[in-house]
Amino acid sequence: MMISKMLLGAASVAMVAGLAQAESHMADTSGKRIALSNNYAGNSWRQAMLQTWEEVGGQAVADGVLAAADAYTTSENQATEQAAQIQNMILQGYDAIVMNAASPTALNGAVKEACDAGVTVVSFDGIVTEPCAWRIAVDFAAMGREEVDYLATRLPDGGNLLEIRGLAGVFVDDEISKGIHEGVAEHDQFEIVGSVHGDWAQDVAQKAVAGVLPSLPEIVGVVTQGGDGYGAAQAFKAAGRPTPLIVLGNRQDELQWWAEQRAANNYETLSLSIAPGVASLALWVAQQVLAGNEVPKDLTVPFLKITQDTLDESLASTPEGSVANVTYTLGDAKQVIADAQ
């Protein structure tokens, strides 16, 4: 079963790669080496990201599309450490560096050094602002707005919302929260009556929500940032309150909980987040740049959205305890590039 699945996956990647070679008359990248510079590995999203990189990168090397696709992770999630890592990669002679950056600005110096040394730099998820690098960004603010837009379709009468934010001081947290507040300004039947930081972790979110719930009026909806929806649900349950409409973030335990609630009382919600497989998109974008194709510097990746209709399918394809994922192919990368042009 496992082996047949793996073979199937390998075959499809090989096919796409084959197609790519057939249609791309640009320079051959079989001698090019790409490194992944990753700043953090300590949660299930990052683990899924690294796994996708390993699979897609390993396959690309096996197919002769690339000479190497190596992953490196820093241990302490610090910009200084990652800057040193990038300098090492320049010395090791990589042709391209794909990075998930610890800071949007603090690594600009190291990124510039890489560009000056002729290395292609593609940043994704945690992007860098240095103009010489490519950026595969997620419109986090749009994700926040979309959550409120969805609540407005489900709860036309509005009501009180609880906002669960991520890690204080991180760019992504500010962006999603900004989008949520814009959405609430637009749909003024909603009011955010409480806001807590859940650090994108179920146990932290559960603790924060449990602490603030006694002081809150009736809550109709919970807007989240991913990795915190299950904890929020547990806190509402422990407090003996009715479960509000909680927007989820694609974690398997959240989807599992959603499926159970749906079976018990027709619970309906929306789940959205960024697929960890965005690393594979960044790999193919770097490959395209190395192949000499025209690639705009700013690309946008869509979120992975799970609705009532696609829940079963997503749940079945997500390993227990992991995050819903999609692996991007070279074709997807070309589509994203074409859309940006």
Binding site: D199, A201, Q202, D203, D253
Partner: peptide, 16 residues
């Protein structure tokens, strides 16, 4: 106890 309480062990569960 914390992992049993919150529905599973996560890699960042001890951080705080």
């Amino acid at each position: 106890l914390l992992a049993s309480f919150s529905g599973g062990a996560a890699l960042n569960m001890g951080a705080e």
